[in-house]
């Protein structure tokens, strides 16, 4: 993954791995709430790590719309484009 040259995806996966059990398999379709059991507050907290790494701020309404890991990657990409 580290040679994928995709810093956004790397940051998202890294932050997620740090917040959930290490033996859970993660892919873009993984539902962050239903499958990983993260609460809204926990999601906002792990987003801090991504924000630090990528040096951007993700508005709360955008975080609230996220369901899957892929959604989060897409949201950040969109923000960078808008940025």
């Amino acid at each position: 993954m580290s040679d994928s040259a995709d810093p956004i995806r790397d940051a998202v996966y890294r932050a997620l791995r740090a917040s959930v059990d290490s033996d859970v398999a993660l892919n873009d379709k993984t539902n962050i709430r239903a499958e990983l059991g993260l609460t809204s507050v926990a999601i906002m907290d792990f987003v801090f790590e991504i924000e630090d790494e990528l040096d951007l701020s993700i508005p709360l309404d955008r975080i609230a719309e996220v369901e899957t890991v892929g959604d989060l990657v897409a949201t950040i990409r969109a923000l960078e484009r808008e940025g």
């Binding site: 801090f48 508005p59 709360l60 309404d61």
Partner: peptide
């Protein structure tokens, strides 16, 4: 949080 959501501003949080 609810007051922030009720308005139209962009909302972010800090540690």
């Amino acid at each position: 949080y609810d007051g922030a959501r009720l308005g139209l501003a962009e909302v972010t949080r800090f540690r």
